Amino acid sequence: MSSTKPIRLTYAFDAFDAFDAYCGWCYGFGPALHEFAAVNADRIELRVLSGGLFTGRRALMDSADAATGLVALRSQPGANALDAAAAMQRAWYVDGRSLSDAAVYRDIATELGLDADAVGAAYVSPAARTEAEADFLQVRRLGVDGYPTLLLHTAHGTDRQGGPVSSADALTRALDQHLAAAAAA
């Protein structure tokens, strides 16, 4: 393990950190992001925030429900937010399950080795919904306007590090370039 402080990154996806569970591009980006995170685990701290792609009275798919599910999952001891997001995407894209159904999150919790009762209780709690809405605001404050987005946090703000067609190797090269530039400064 490196003795230096990990570089902080934020993954925004719609209903999946600066990602949204309902965002097809986020689903496609998932494998590259997982590989990047695994290869660089000792150098990065990855935060997953929901972006809120589909919200409001006219939304047919409710990103707020999916974001609340992510909060319920990631708030459990031993949870990995990126794995939770991927499991949610599998539930939607592969299994065709609703991300507005509390039973889905209980099943995902079991799959991930988390306490299903605690996840179920968290999903229906007002605090989880409030935290999900706070994620939406945080993503907007970070200037994210498309999903998926991977942001690198620096002393000068945030820099976008790749997007839906980036490979794990390209993401690692971008991280290496940032670290080299920071060391030279």
Rank of each mutant, 00 (worst) to 15 (best):
S2P: 14
T4I: 00
P6N: 03
I7V: 14
I7D: 08
L9D: 07
A12C: 15
F13I: 05
F13V: 06
A15Y: 12
A18H: 13
D20V: 00
D20S: 15
A21M: 01
A21V: 11
Y22E: 00
Y22T: 01
C23Q: 10
C23T: 01
G24I: 07
W25D: 14
C26E: 01
C26T: 06
C26M: 01
C26L: 11
Y27H: 13
G28Q: 03
F29Q: 00
G30I: 02
G30S: 15
P31N: 11
L33N: 00
H34C: 00
F36P: 02
A37Y: 02
D42H: 09
R43A: 11
R43Q: 09
I44D: 07
L46G: 10
R47Y: 05
R47T: 13
L49F: 08
G51M: 04
L53M: 14
F54H: 04
F54I: 00
G56K: 06
R58Q: 14
A59L: 01
L60G: 07
M61E: 15
A64G: 11
D65N: 14
D65A: 11
A66N: 09
G69E: 12
V71S: 12
V71A: 12
L73R: 12
L73S: 05
S75K: 13
Q76G: 04
P77Y: 08
N80L: 02
A81D: 00
A81L: 10
L82V: 07
D83L: 15
D83S: 14
A86P: 00
A87C: 06
M88D: 10
Q89D: 04
R90N: 13
A91K: 09
Y93M: 12
Y93W: 14
D95R: 14
G96R: 12
R97K: 15
S98R: 10
S100F: 02
D101T: 06
D101Q: 07
A103G: 11
V104F: 04
V104C: 15
A109Y: 12
L112V: 09
G113L: 09
G113C: 11
D115A: 02
A116H: 10
